[in-house]
Amino acid sequence: MSTYLPDRNTLPALAKKALPASRKARLAPVGYAMGLFAVGTALLIAKPRFGQVPSPIQNGDAPRIGRWRRAAQHGRDGVQAFAPSNVTDSVGRSLILGGVALLAARALDEMSGRTGK
C-alpha cells in the first residue's frame, strides 16, 4: 500500500483549487474555544469531589529509622508541593488555556486575511 505525498510542483496547484471556507466552518473553532473555556471554568468553580486527591501522608510524619525510608519520606514531602490537591483544577486550567489559545489562533488567522495578504 503506497501513500501519495504531493511534491513542491503540485502544492501551488492544490492551493489554487482550494475553496474558501464557509462562514460556519470559519466560526466553528470559536465555538469549540468557548466550550473549552466554559467547561474549564465550570470545573474550577465546582471542584467536584471525584477529583479530590487524598493526602500522600498515609503513615504519618514520624521519623523513620531506616535510611531508605527517611529518603523516601523526604522525597514524598518534596514532590507533594507539585501534586494537585484536586485533579479537576489542573484539567480545568488546561481546558481554559487551550480555549484561549484556540481563540487567539482563530482571531489571528482571521486578521491575517483569507489570502494571507
Rank of each mutant, 00 (worst) to 15 (best):
Y4E: 13
D7L: 07
D7R: 09
R8P: 03
A13E: 11
A13F: 14
A15K: 05
K16A: 13
A18K: 12
P20A: 06
R23M: 06
A25C: 06
R26Y: 03
L27I: 14
A28E: 09
V30Y: 03
V30G: 02
V30R: 00
Y32S: 08
A33D: 01
A33M: 02
V39E: 00
A42T: 08
L43S: 01
L44S: 02
L44A: 00
I45W: 09
I45P: 02
K47W: 01
P48V: 04
F50D: 05
F50M: 09
G51R: 01
G51F: 01
V53W: 09
V53I: 15
P54I: 03
D61W: 08
A62E: 12
G66C: 06
R67D: 13
R67G: 10
R67E: 14
R69N: 13
R70H: 12
R70M: 11
Q73I: 11
Q80I: 12
A81M: 06
A83E: 09
A83M: 13
P84V: 09
S85N: 12
S85K: 15
N86Y: 07
D89P: 00
S90L: 10
V91I: 15
V91M: 03
R93A: 13
S94Y: 01
I96P: 01
L97V: 13
L97D: 07
G99M: 01
A101C: 08
L102V: 11
L102W: 03
A104V: 15
A105M: 09
A105F: 01
L108Y: 11
D109G: 14
M111W: 15
G113H: 09
G113D: 08
G113E: 05
R114L: 08
T115D: 15
T115M: 07
